[in-house]
Design a protein around this nucleic acid. Structure first.
Lengths: 200, 200
DNA sequence: GTCTATAGCGCGATAGAC
DNA sequence: GTCTATCGCGCTATAGAC
Protein backbone atom coordinates (compact mmCIF):
# COMPACT_ATOMS: atom_id res chain seq x y z
CA UNK A 1 0.00 0.00 0.00
CA UNK A 2 1.64 3.23 -1.12
CA UNK A 3 2.10 5.80 1.56
CA UNK A 4 0.59 8.75 -0.18
CA UNK A 5 -0.25 8.43 -3.84
CA UNK A 6 1.67 6.75 -6.56
CA UNK A 7 1.17 7.84 -10.11
CA UNK A 8 -1.08 10.46 -11.53
CA UNK A 9 -1.64 12.42 -8.36
CA UNK A 10 1.45 14.58 -8.14
CA UNK A 11 0.36 16.46 -11.26
CA UNK A 12 -3.08 17.23 -9.89
CA UNK A 13 -1.74 20.01 -7.69
CA UNK A 14 0.14 21.60 -10.57
CA UNK A 15 -2.92 21.47 -12.79
CA UNK A 16 -4.94 23.13 -10.07
CA UNK A 17 -2.29 25.77 -9.51
CA UNK A 18 -2.25 26.54 -13.23
CA UNK A 19 -6.04 26.81 -13.34
CA UNK A 20 -6.12 28.98 -10.22
CA UNK A 21 -3.53 31.39 -11.61
CA UNK A 22 -5.11 31.50 -15.06
CA UNK A 23 -8.54 32.10 -13.57
CA UNK A 24 -7.47 35.08 -11.52
CA UNK A 25 -5.41 36.55 -14.35
CA UNK A 26 -8.19 36.18 -16.92
CA UNK A 27 -10.81 37.59 -14.54
CA UNK A 28 -8.59 40.66 -14.25
CA UNK A 29 -6.99 41.09 -17.68
CA UNK A 30 -9.02 38.89 -20.02
CA UNK A 31 -7.78 35.87 -21.96
CA UNK A 32 -6.38 38.15 -24.65
CA UNK A 33 -4.57 40.14 -21.99
CA UNK A 34 -2.44 37.30 -20.63
CA UNK A 35 -0.08 34.64 -21.96
CA UNK A 36 1.55 31.39 -20.96
CA UNK A 37 4.45 33.51 -19.75
CA UNK A 38 2.16 35.47 -17.41
CA UNK A 39 0.76 32.27 -15.94
CA UNK A 40 4.15 30.60 -15.63
CA UNK A 41 5.55 33.51 -13.62
CA UNK A 42 2.61 33.34 -11.24
CA UNK A 43 2.78 29.57 -10.77
CA UNK A 44 6.56 29.34 -10.68
CA UNK A 45 7.03 26.83 -13.48
CA UNK A 46 8.10 27.14 -17.09
CA UNK A 47 5.89 27.77 -20.09
CA UNK A 48 6.61 24.33 -21.52
CA UNK A 49 5.30 22.71 -18.34
CA UNK A 50 1.96 24.41 -18.78
CA UNK A 51 1.73 23.01 -22.29
CA UNK A 52 2.25 19.56 -20.77
CA UNK A 53 -0.97 19.95 -18.75
CA UNK A 54 -2.95 22.05 -21.22
CA UNK A 55 -1.68 21.55 -24.78
CA UNK A 56 -3.26 24.73 -26.18
CA UNK A 57 -4.57 27.96 -24.77
CA UNK A 58 -8.05 27.15 -26.08
CA UNK A 59 -8.13 23.89 -24.10
CA UNK A 60 -6.98 25.70 -20.99
CA UNK A 61 -9.73 28.28 -21.30
CA UNK A 62 -12.33 25.59 -21.93
CA UNK A 63 -11.30 23.64 -18.86
CA UNK A 64 -11.34 26.88 -16.90
CA UNK A 65 -14.91 27.67 -17.90
CA UNK A 66 -15.98 24.10 -17.10
CA UNK A 67 -14.49 24.26 -13.63
CA UNK A 68 -15.79 27.77 -12.95
CA UNK A 69 -19.32 26.93 -14.06
CA UNK A 70 -19.36 23.70 -12.03
CA UNK A 71 -18.17 25.37 -8.84
CA UNK A 72 -20.32 28.46 -9.25
CA UNK A 73 -23.49 26.54 -9.99
CA UNK A 74 -22.83 24.23 -7.05
CA UNK A 75 -22.92 27.28 -4.81
CA UNK A 76 -26.03 28.56 -6.55
CA UNK A 77 -27.79 25.25 -6.07
CA UNK A 78 -26.99 25.31 -2.38
CA UNK A 79 -28.70 28.69 -2.21
CA UNK A 80 -31.67 27.59 -4.29
CA UNK A 81 -32.12 24.45 -2.19
CA UNK A 82 -31.86 26.21 1.15
CA UNK A 83 -34.82 26.96 3.41
CA UNK A 84 -34.53 30.72 3.19
CA UNK A 85 -37.16 32.91 1.58
CA UNK A 86 -36.66 34.30 -1.88
CA UNK A 87 -35.25 37.73 -0.91
CA UNK A 88 -32.56 36.10 1.25
CA UNK A 89 -31.73 33.69 -1.57
CA UNK A 90 -31.45 36.59 -3.98
CA UNK A 91 -29.14 38.44 -1.64
CA UNK A 92 -26.97 35.35 -1.22
CA UNK A 93 -26.82 34.93 -4.98
CA UNK A 94 -25.81 38.55 -5.49
CA UNK A 95 -23.19 38.12 -2.79
CA UNK A 96 -21.46 35.53 -4.98
CA UNK A 97 -20.76 38.26 -7.51
CA UNK A 98 -19.86 40.88 -4.93
CA UNK A 99 -17.29 38.63 -3.29
CA UNK A 100 -15.69 38.03 -6.68
CA UNK A 101 -15.29 41.77 -7.15
CA UNK A 102 -13.74 41.95 -3.68
CA UNK A 103 -11.44 38.95 -4.12
CA UNK A 104 -7.76 39.84 -3.82
CA UNK A 105 -5.71 40.87 -5.62
CA UNK A 106 -7.63 43.74 -7.17
CA UNK A 107 -11.08 43.71 -8.64
CA UNK A 108 -11.95 40.50 -10.44
CA UNK A 109 -14.83 40.20 -12.87
CA UNK A 110 -16.98 37.14 -13.24
CA UNK A 111 -14.88 34.84 -15.44
CA UNK A 112 -17.80 34.34 -17.79
CA UNK A 113 -18.62 38.03 -17.95
CA UNK A 114 -15.08 38.75 -19.04
CA UNK A 115 -15.10 35.92 -21.56
CA UNK A 116 -18.47 37.10 -22.83
CA UNK A 117 -16.82 40.33 -23.92
CA UNK A 118 -14.08 38.31 -25.63
CA UNK A 119 -16.54 35.86 -27.09
CA UNK A 120 -15.69 36.46 -30.75
CA UNK A 121 -12.13 35.28 -30.15
CA UNK A 122 -13.03 32.14 -28.19
CA UNK A 123 -13.06 28.59 -29.48
CA UNK A 124 -16.51 27.31 -30.46
CA UNK A 125 -16.44 24.94 -27.48
CA UNK A 126 -15.71 27.74 -25.03
CA UNK A 127 -18.48 29.84 -26.57
CA UNK A 128 -20.92 26.99 -26.09
CA UNK A 129 -19.91 26.49 -22.47
CA UNK A 130 -20.35 30.21 -21.92
CA UNK A 131 -23.88 30.24 -23.28
CA UNK A 132 -24.74 27.26 -21.11
CA UNK A 133 -23.44 29.08 -18.02
CA UNK A 134 -25.63 32.07 -18.81
CA UNK A 135 -28.71 29.93 -19.32
CA UNK A 136 -28.11 27.88 -16.18
CA UNK A 137 -27.88 31.02 -14.09
CA UNK A 138 -30.92 32.60 -15.71
CA UNK A 139 -32.89 29.43 -15.12
CA UNK A 140 -32.05 29.31 -11.42
CA UNK A 141 -32.75 33.00 -10.95
CA UNK A 142 -36.11 32.45 -12.62
CA UNK A 143 -36.87 29.70 -10.10
CA UNK A 144 -36.05 31.93 -7.13
CA UNK A 145 -38.09 34.81 -8.52
CA UNK A 146 -41.11 32.68 -9.33
CA UNK A 147 -41.11 31.09 -5.88
CA UNK A 148 -40.76 34.52 -4.27
CA UNK A 149 -43.73 35.91 -6.10
CA UNK A 150 -45.80 32.86 -5.16
CA UNK A 151 -44.90 33.10 -1.48
CA UNK A 152 -45.57 36.84 -1.58
CA UNK A 153 -42.07 38.03 -0.69
CA UNK A 154 -41.27 39.42 -4.14
CA UNK A 155 -43.33 41.67 -6.34
CA UNK A 156 -42.62 42.34 -10.00
CA UNK A 157 -44.32 42.42 -13.39
CA UNK A 158 -43.69 39.93 -16.19
CA UNK A 159 -42.23 36.49 -16.72
CA UNK A 160 -39.89 35.40 -13.89
CA UNK A 161 -37.42 33.82 -16.29
CA UNK A 162 -37.19 37.04 -18.29
CA UNK A 163 -36.71 39.07 -15.11
CA UNK A 164 -34.06 36.53 -14.08
CA UNK A 165 -32.22 37.05 -17.35
CA UNK A 166 -32.36 40.80 -16.83
CA UNK A 167 -31.10 40.50 -13.27
CA UNK A 168 -28.22 38.31 -14.43
CA UNK A 169 -27.32 40.79 -17.18
CA UNK A 170 -27.45 43.60 -14.67
CA UNK A 171 -25.05 41.81 -12.33
CA UNK A 172 -22.54 41.09 -15.10
CA UNK A 173 -22.71 44.68 -16.33
CA UNK A 174 -22.54 46.17 -12.85
CA UNK A 175 -19.29 44.32 -12.14
CA UNK A 176 -17.68 45.87 -15.22
CA UNK A 177 -19.01 49.37 -14.64
CA UNK A 178 -18.33 49.33 -10.90
CA UNK A 179 -14.75 48.16 -11.39
CA UNK A 180 -14.05 51.29 -13.43
CA UNK A 181 -15.23 53.54 -10.61
CA UNK A 182 -16.05 52.85 -6.96
CA UNK A 183 -15.74 49.07 -7.01
CA UNK A 184 -17.64 46.78 -4.68
CA UNK A 185 -19.17 49.71 -2.80
CA UNK A 186 -20.84 50.87 -5.98
CA UNK A 187 -21.83 47.31 -6.83
CA UNK A 188 -23.50 46.88 -3.46
CA UNK A 189 -25.29 50.21 -3.71
CA UNK A 190 -26.75 49.30 -7.08
CA UNK A 191 -27.69 45.73 -6.23
CA UNK A 192 -29.37 46.88 -3.01
CA UNK A 193 -31.44 49.29 -5.08
CA UNK A 194 -32.42 46.55 -7.51
CA UNK A 195 -33.41 44.31 -4.61
CA UNK A 196 -35.63 47.15 -3.48
CA UNK A 197 -37.29 47.32 -6.88
CA UNK A 198 -38.08 43.60 -6.76
CA UNK A 199 -39.29 43.53 -3.15
CA UNK A 200 -41.68 46.46 -3.53
CA UNK B 1 -8.36 80.39 -54.03
CA UNK B 2 -7.58 76.68 -54.12
CA UNK B 3 -10.17 74.58 -55.82
CA UNK B 4 -10.66 71.95 -53.18
CA UNK B 5 -8.30 71.91 -50.24
CA UNK B 6 -4.61 72.43 -50.13
CA UNK B 7 -2.66 71.04 -47.24
CA UNK B 8 -3.83 69.33 -44.13
CA UNK B 9 -7.24 68.26 -45.32
CA UNK B 10 -6.50 65.18 -47.36
CA UNK B 11 -5.48 63.31 -44.21
CA UNK B 12 -8.76 63.92 -42.43
CA UNK B 13 -10.53 61.20 -44.37
CA UNK B 14 -7.80 58.68 -43.67
CA UNK B 15 -7.88 59.45 -39.97
CA UNK B 16 -11.63 58.96 -39.97
CA UNK B 17 -11.35 55.71 -41.90
CA UNK B 18 -8.81 54.42 -39.39
CA UNK B 19 -11.02 55.38 -36.45
CA UNK B 20 -14.09 53.84 -38.08
CA UNK B 21 -12.34 50.55 -38.73
CA UNK B 22 -10.72 50.44 -35.29
CA UNK B 23 -14.02 51.20 -33.62
CA UNK B 24 -15.89 48.40 -35.28
CA UNK B 25 -13.05 45.92 -34.75
CA UNK B 26 -12.65 46.79 -31.08
CA UNK B 27 -16.41 46.67 -30.46
CA UNK B 28 -16.32 43.14 -31.84
CA UNK B 29 -12.98 41.69 -30.72
CA UNK B 30 -11.71 44.05 -28.04
CA UNK B 31 -8.59 46.18 -28.15
CA UNK B 32 -6.48 43.18 -27.10
CA UNK B 33 -8.06 41.15 -29.87
CA UNK B 34 -6.90 43.30 -32.78
CA UNK B 35 -3.68 44.81 -34.05
CA UNK B 36 -2.41 47.49 -36.41
CA UNK B 37 -2.29 44.75 -39.04
CA UNK B 38 -6.01 44.03 -38.56
CA UNK B 39 -6.89 47.67 -38.97
CA UNK B 40 -4.59 48.19 -41.94
CA UNK B 41 -6.21 45.32 -43.85
CA UNK B 42 -9.64 46.78 -43.24
CA UNK B 43 -8.67 50.32 -44.25
CA UNK B 44 -6.46 49.31 -47.16
CA UNK B 45 -3.29 51.08 -46.06
CA UNK B 46 -0.07 49.89 -44.46
CA UNK B 47 0.67 49.59 -40.77
CA UNK B 48 3.26 52.38 -40.93
CA UNK B 49 0.65 54.78 -42.27
CA UNK B 50 -1.52 54.20 -39.23
CA UNK B 51 1.41 55.05 -36.99
CA UNK B 52 1.70 58.33 -38.89
CA UNK B 53 -1.80 59.32 -37.75
CA UNK B 54 -1.81 57.63 -34.34
CA UNK B 55 1.75 57.14 -33.06
CA UNK B 56 0.84 54.47 -30.49
CA UNK B 57 -2.03 52.10 -29.91
CA UNK B 58 -2.82 53.79 -26.61
CA UNK B 59 -3.28 57.15 -28.33
CA UNK B 60 -5.51 55.56 -30.93
CA UNK B 61 -7.72 53.99 -28.29
CA UNK B 62 -7.90 57.25 -26.36
CA UNK B 63 -8.95 59.20 -29.42
CA UNK B 64 -11.49 56.49 -30.18
CA UNK B 65 -13.08 56.77 -26.74
CA UNK B 66 -13.13 60.55 -27.01
CA UNK B 67 -14.91 60.46 -30.35
CA UNK B 68 -17.31 57.69 -29.29
CA UNK B 69 -18.26 59.48 -26.07
CA UNK B 70 -18.74 62.80 -27.86
CA UNK B 71 -20.98 61.34 -30.57
CA UNK B 72 -22.94 59.09 -28.22
CA UNK B 73 -23.62 61.80 -25.67
CA UNK B 74 -24.64 64.19 -28.43
CA UNK B 75 -27.36 61.72 -29.36
CA UNK B 76 -28.31 61.26 -25.73
CA UNK B 77 -28.61 65.01 -25.23
CA UNK B 78 -30.91 65.24 -28.22
CA UNK B 79 -33.13 62.68 -26.54
CA UNK B 80 -32.97 64.34 -23.13
CA UNK B 81 -33.78 67.73 -24.64
CA UNK B 82 -36.68 66.52 -26.74
CA UNK B 83 -40.33 67.14 -25.92
CA UNK B 84 -41.22 63.51 -25.40
CA UNK B 85 -42.28 62.07 -22.06
CA UNK B 86 -39.85 60.08 -19.98
CA UNK B 87 -40.87 56.57 -21.13
CA UNK B 88 -40.37 57.54 -24.78
CA UNK B 89 -37.01 59.09 -23.94
CA UNK B 90 -35.99 55.93 -22.13
CA UNK B 91 -36.99 53.81 -25.10
CA UNK B 92 -35.02 56.05 -27.45
CA UNK B 93 -32.00 55.82 -25.17
CA UNK B 94 -32.20 52.03 -25.04
CA UNK B 95 -32.55 52.00 -28.82
CA UNK B 96 -29.06 53.52 -29.08
CA UNK B 97 -27.67 50.36 -27.53
CA UNK B 98 -29.92 48.01 -29.47
CA UNK B 99 -28.91 49.52 -32.80
CA UNK B 100 -25.25 49.05 -31.87
CA UNK B 101 -25.89 45.36 -31.29
CA UNK B 102 -27.62 45.22 -34.67
CA UNK B 103 -24.98 47.21 -36.57
CA UNK B 104 -23.35 45.24 -39.35
CA UNK B 105 -21.14 43.32 -39.55
CA UNK B 106 -22.04 41.05 -36.68
CA UNK B 107 -22.97 41.95 -33.14
CA UNK B 108 -21.08 44.95 -31.84
CA UNK B 109 -20.86 45.80 -28.18
CA UNK B 110 -20.84 49.31 -26.79
CA UNK B 111 -17.23 50.42 -27.28
CA UNK B 112 -17.02 51.48 -23.65
CA UNK B 113 -18.59 48.29 -22.37
CA UNK B 114 -15.93 46.30 -24.18
CA UNK B 115 -13.14 48.56 -22.97
CA UNK B 116 -14.57 48.36 -19.45
CA UNK B 117 -13.85 44.64 -19.46
CA UNK B 118 -10.31 45.37 -20.69
CA UNK B 119 -9.86 48.24 -18.29
CA UNK B 120 -6.84 46.86 -16.45
CA UNK B 121 -4.82 46.89 -19.67
CA UNK B 122 -5.79 50.41 -20.77
CA UNK B 123 -3.67 53.53 -20.45
CA UNK B 124 -4.55 55.70 -17.43
CA UNK B 125 -5.95 58.34 -19.79
CA UNK B 126 -8.26 55.87 -21.50
CA UNK B 127 -9.42 54.57 -18.12
CA UNK B 128 -10.28 58.12 -17.04
CA UNK B 129 -12.22 58.79 -20.23
CA UNK B 130 -14.09 55.54 -19.70
CA UNK B 131 -15.15 56.45 -16.17
CA UNK B 132 -16.31 59.84 -17.40
CA UNK B 133 -18.43 58.19 -20.10
CA UNK B 134 -20.10 55.99 -17.51
CA UNK B 135 -20.82 58.91 -15.20
CA UNK B 136 -22.14 61.10 -18.00
CA UNK B 137 -24.59 58.42 -19.05
CA UNK B 138 -25.66 57.68 -15.51
CA UNK B 139 -26.22 61.38 -14.90
CA UNK B 140 -28.44 61.79 -17.95
CA UNK B 141 -30.40 58.64 -17.18
CA UNK B 142 -30.93 59.99 -13.68
CA UNK B 143 -32.37 63.18 -15.18
CA UNK B 144 -34.81 61.30 -17.36
CA UNK B 145 -35.91 59.05 -14.51
CA UNK B 146 -36.38 61.90 -12.06
CA UNK B 147 -38.44 63.90 -14.55
CA UNK B 148 -40.52 60.83 -15.33
CA UNK B 149 -41.37 60.23 -11.72
CA UNK B 150 -42.29 63.89 -11.25
CA UNK B 151 -44.56 63.93 -14.28
CA UNK B 152 -46.10 60.64 -13.15
CA UNK B 153 -45.12 58.53 -16.16
CA UNK B 154 -42.54 56.46 -14.29
CA UNK B 155 -42.81 54.67 -10.98
CA UNK B 156 -39.91 53.27 -9.03
CA UNK B 157 -38.40 53.24 -5.55
CA UNK B 158 -35.14 54.91 -4.58
CA UNK B 159 -32.78 57.59 -5.82
CA UNK B 160 -33.17 58.27 -9.58
CA UNK B 161 -29.43 58.58 -10.10
CA UNK B 162 -28.85 55.19 -8.48
CA UNK B 163 -31.59 53.63 -10.60
CA UNK B 164 -29.99 55.30 -13.63
CA UNK B 165 -26.64 53.70 -12.78
CA UNK B 166 -28.34 50.34 -12.45
CA UNK B 167 -30.14 50.74 -15.74
CA UNK B 168 -26.90 51.68 -17.47
CA UNK B 169 -25.13 48.66 -15.97
CA UNK B 170 -27.99 46.44 -17.08
CA UNK B 171 -27.75 47.70 -20.66
CA UNK B 172 -23.98 47.14 -20.83
CA UNK B 173 -24.35 43.66 -19.37
CA UNK B 174 -27.31 42.75 -21.53
CA UNK B 175 -25.33 43.52 -24.68
CA UNK B 176 -22.61 41.08 -23.65
CA UNK B 177 -24.96 38.34 -22.49
CA UNK B 178 -27.33 38.72 -25.44
CA UNK B 179 -24.48 38.58 -27.97
CA UNK B 180 -23.59 35.12 -26.69
CA UNK B 181 -27.11 33.83 -27.28
CA UNK B 182 -30.09 35.30 -29.16
CA UNK B 183 -28.64 38.71 -29.93
CA UNK B 184 -30.74 41.83 -30.40
CA UNK B 185 -33.98 39.88 -30.02
CA UNK B 186 -32.96 38.86 -26.54
CA UNK B 187 -31.74 42.36 -25.80
CA UNK B 188 -35.09 43.82 -26.81
CA UNK B 189 -37.04 41.27 -24.79
CA UNK B 190 -35.08 42.07 -21.66
CA UNK B 191 -35.08 45.83 -22.07
CA UNK B 192 -38.85 45.80 -22.74
CA UNK B 193 -39.29 43.90 -19.49
CA UNK B 194 -37.17 46.40 -17.58
CA UNK B 195 -39.18 49.27 -19.09
CA UNK B 196 -42.25 47.52 -17.73
CA UNK B 197 -40.75 47.37 -14.25
CA UNK B 198 -40.08 51.11 -14.31
CA UNK B 199 -43.43 52.12 -15.78
CA UNK B 200 -45.51 50.12 -13.29
C1' DG C 1 6.75 16.00 -15.14
C1' DT C 2 9.84 19.63 -15.63
C1' DC C 3 13.37 21.61 -17.88
C1' DT C 4 16.32 24.26 -21.91
C1' DA C 5 16.22 25.63 -26.35
C1' DT C 6 14.16 27.03 -30.33
C1' DA C 7 11.00 27.22 -34.28
C1' DG C 8 7.83 30.24 -36.59
C1' DC C 9 5.09 33.86 -36.42
C1' DG C 10 2.79 38.35 -35.17
C1' DC C 11 3.22 42.28 -32.50
C1' DG C 12 4.08 47.59 -31.83
C1' DA C 13 7.06 50.77 -33.42
C1' DT C 14 10.80 53.25 -36.25
C1' DA C 15 13.93 54.70 -40.26
C1' DG C 16 14.18 56.54 -44.43
C1' DA C 17 13.01 56.63 -49.57
C1' DC C 18 9.59 58.63 -52.53
C1' DG D 1 1.22 60.98 -46.40
C1' DT D 2 2.25 56.57 -47.85
C1' DC D 3 5.34 53.26 -48.75
C1' DT D 4 9.17 49.20 -47.97
C1' DA D 5 12.05 47.26 -44.86
C1' DT D 6 13.39 46.07 -40.53
C1' DC D 7 14.25 46.01 -35.45
C1' DG D 8 13.44 43.86 -31.07
C1' DC D 9 10.37 41.54 -28.64
C1' DG D 10 6.59 38.40 -27.06
C1' DC D 11 3.65 35.00 -28.43
C1' DT D 12 1.95 29.84 -28.96
C1' DA D 13 3.72 25.68 -29.54
C1' DT D 14 7.15 21.78 -30.08
C1' DA D 15 11.52 18.80 -29.62
C1' DG D 16 14.22 16.39 -26.81
C1' DA D 17 17.37 15.95 -22.60
C1' DC D 18 16.98 14.74 -17.78
Amino acid sequence: MPRKAARPTASKDTQTAILDAAEELIQTHGSNGISYATISERVGIRKASIHHHFPTKDKLVEELVRRYARDFLTNVDLIVGSRRKAPAKLRAYIQLFESTLEAAPGRRLCLCGMLGAERENLSPQAATLLKRFYRDNEHRLGQILEAGRKEGTLEFAGDPRTVGMSLFSFLEGAMIVARADRGSRQFRQLSDGVMGLLAG
